[in-house]
Design a binder for these strands. Structure first.
Length: 571
RNA sequence: CGGGACGUAGCGCAGCUUGGUAGCGCACCUGAUUUGGGAUCAGGUGGUCGCAGGUUCAAAUCCUGUCGUCCCGACCA
């Protein structure tokens, strides 16, 4: 490729709309252009990298027994109505009508379609397992698209669906995918961790998210400083720890606590630590007010709470809703409450002589004990959000906090969709059984953005060799020097003939412009050809990742490059 | 969906308070000089100021509406 003809318009200034580094660099390097909110054109450089990531994905999927196919993006409403998701999915589902006003949607995911095919074409256990995948544009009408490719409304995704005859088969598929994903993200050069993730309505253990570590990531995770335990903070789980253990139950005393509406206020006034306080919160779960109890120094994981309650919509109850129930925000407590369900985190029953609100303005109670029967709990569940600094549940290490970009997710669906969409097969005993399914996604564009997010400096992108749009750029330093132009041209031709992915920067620009663009675009290897060096028979190689500069004999540069690319595993 | 901000040339911005010929930097085009880290000089192209109404002799500027975009939050197969 000649730079003079390359469609990669670089920008000196950062477009105002780009907030995070990967988005800024993709805009500046001419990789990406926005067409509408959350809708982007992948310019040639970006598309080359996308294709490389997709090729890595294909190799690993195929190695794990996958077969690639292509499902339609345009999907009839009937299938979604059958699975129940036409109504459940909400505004995010991109609905369209055809000329006869029939309902369709643009696929945000493809469980319905793939299961439809299974229903039609798979009859026998002899045809299992099946692992089918595709790489395709997905559509989700996100409420808030953001950060360039991180959360788009139209985006490239690899999705695989596995069909096994039983749970054991699913486990095999799942482990194959776990390993394949690890290989893929490793090959892409990402610093990532697989973390245990929420399984939502489907429940059970059976989901991992692959998180590229980055401060700009949208998800919070905890991971152990000693072992390989890692989990989303929303679902990380630790054994319950009570407070006041061993103390004798004391008599309940009402304490006047004016203007103390936070746990901290109350704990300070009473001279206790917040772990001796029970925090009482009220949520509206599918419209029903529920009281939730948790240790005062803990945070509620709304994901856990939602799963425990089995509700679809969960939000903090409004002050009006509380007053309607005869409660006073800031002075909530469980004692004497009869008109709503009470759910408690598993630590609460272990708390002795704790404090809580008195359900009267400006009053709290001390020495309250669930174990003594002071109040009622209808449901006990693990509800707390784990925080960095807490002990690892698997070893004696300590949990650290980090943020991550979710680049992939693997999920055990089990029989949710096979039952809803009638994906049954006949086993060797002649019995009909639902296929046991798994689904496995990778955001291709997000992976590309995550690589940039992790690998850049003040000058631009630093591509790992495996996903660089080109491997080598040749920069002739002076376009008036004919010997130099000729040397650059002939090296370019030799490398092309050797099928090296090379760009010749033949633009009539000053060297500084070429160097800056090379750094910005992030070519791993830059060959600089200058008059002085050429007179001595040498050219210069700059390694983008390390900044290292090498002088190589002109006659040896081609072999040196081929050798280097071979060692990097891209030949 | 709640909160905040912004729409003026391809990009970054000023002008708006106080209405009166639409500006600056970068990029782009031409010429000359220049050539190892975003050159210099001279000349030039490009904008119905997001859109629609309204007020006014006169609107980028004031008013109303609308569309778009970004950020925070909520939400997230």
């Amino acid at each position: 490729m000649r730079a003079s003809n390359m469609y990669a318009p670089t920008l000196r200034e950062v477009p105002a709309e780009a907030e995070i580094i990967s988005h800024q660099l993709m805009m500046r390097s001419g990789m990406l252009r926005k067409v509408a909110s959350g809708v982007y054109t992948y310019m040639p450089l970006a598309w080359r990298t996308m294709k490389k990531i997709m090729e890595i994905i294909r190799q690993e999927m195929d190695a794990a027994g996958g077969q690639e196919l292509l499902l339609p993006a345009m999907q009839p409403a009937e299938l979604w109505q059958q699975s129940g998701r036409w109504d459940v999915y909400g505004a995010e589902l991109w609905r369209v009508k055809d000329r006869n006003m029939r309902d369709f949607c643009l696929g945000p995911t493809h469980e319905e379609i793939i299961t439809y095919h299974f229903h039609n074409d798979i009859r026998s256990y002899k045809q299992l397992p099946q692992r089918l995948y595709q790489i395709q544009t997905k559509f989700r009408d996100e409420r808030r698209p953001r950060f360039g490719l991180m959360r788009g409304r139209e985006f490239m995704m690899k999705d695989m669906y596995s069909f096994d005859r039983d749970e054991a088969g699913l486990e095999v598929s799942y482990q194959l995918m776990h390993r394949a994903y690890t290989n893929i993200f490793t090959r892409c050069g990402l610093n990532f961790r697989p973390v245990e993730a929420d399984t939502g309505a489907i429940g059970g253990s059976g989901s991992h998210e692959f998180m590229a570590l980055a401060d700009t990531g949208e998800s919070a995770i905890v991971y152990c400083d000693k072992c390989n335990y890692a989990a989303s903070v929303e679902i990380a789980s630790l054994p319950p720890v009570g407070t006041g253990a061993g103390e004798e139950f004391k008599e309940i005393v009402k304490v006047y606590t004016p203007d103390c509406t936070t746990i901290e206020d109350v704990a300070n006034l009473l001279g206790v630590t917040s772990e001796r306080v029970v925090k009482t919160l009220c949520f509206s779960a599918d419209g029903e007010v529920v009281m939730v109890l948790i240790r005062g120094d803990r945070r509620i994981s709304e994901v856990k709470l939602q799963n425990a309650l089995g509700c679809n919509e969960l939000e903090m109850a409004s002050d009006e809703a509380l007053r309607a129930k005869g409660l006073f925000p800031g002075y909530l407590g469980p004692i004497g409450v009869t008109n709503m369900k009470i759910v408690a985190d598993s630590e609460v029953p272990l708390m002795v002589n704790h404090e809580c609100g008195a359900n009267e303005v400006s009053n709290h109670l001390i020495n309250v004990n669930y174990q003594r029967g002071d109040y009622r709990i209808d449901q006990v569940a693990d509800l707390r959000e784990v925080a960095p600094g807490e002990p690892c549940p698997h070893c004696d290490g300590t949990l650290l906090g980090a943020r991550g970009i979710e680049v992939g997710q693997i999920f055990k669906l089990r029989d949710k969709y096979s039952k809803a969409l009638d994906a049954y097969f006949t086993d060797e005993n002649g019995e009909d059984k639902p296929a046991i399914m798994g689904c496995y996604g990778i955001g291709v564009g997000r992976t590309m953005a995550a690589v940039i997010e992790q690998s850049n400096d003040e000058y631009g992108i630093i591509w790992p060799m495996a996903v660089a749009p080109y491997h080598v750029v040749i920069v002739p330093v002076n376009d008036k020097d004919e010997a130099l132009t000729e040397a650059a041209e002939s090296l370019y031709q030799e490398l092309l003939a050797a099928r090296v992915e090379v760009v010749l920067d033949d633009r009539k620009e000053r060297p500084g412009v070429k160097f800056n663009d090379a750094d910005l675009i992030g070519y791993p290897l830059r060959v600089t050809i200058g008059s002085k060096g050429l007179a001595k028979g040498i050219v210069e190689v700059k390694i983008r990742a390390t900044g290292e500069v090498l002088e190589i004999a002109k006659d040896e540069i081609k072999d040196w490059l081929l050798q280097t690319l071979r060692e990097a595993g891209v030949r």
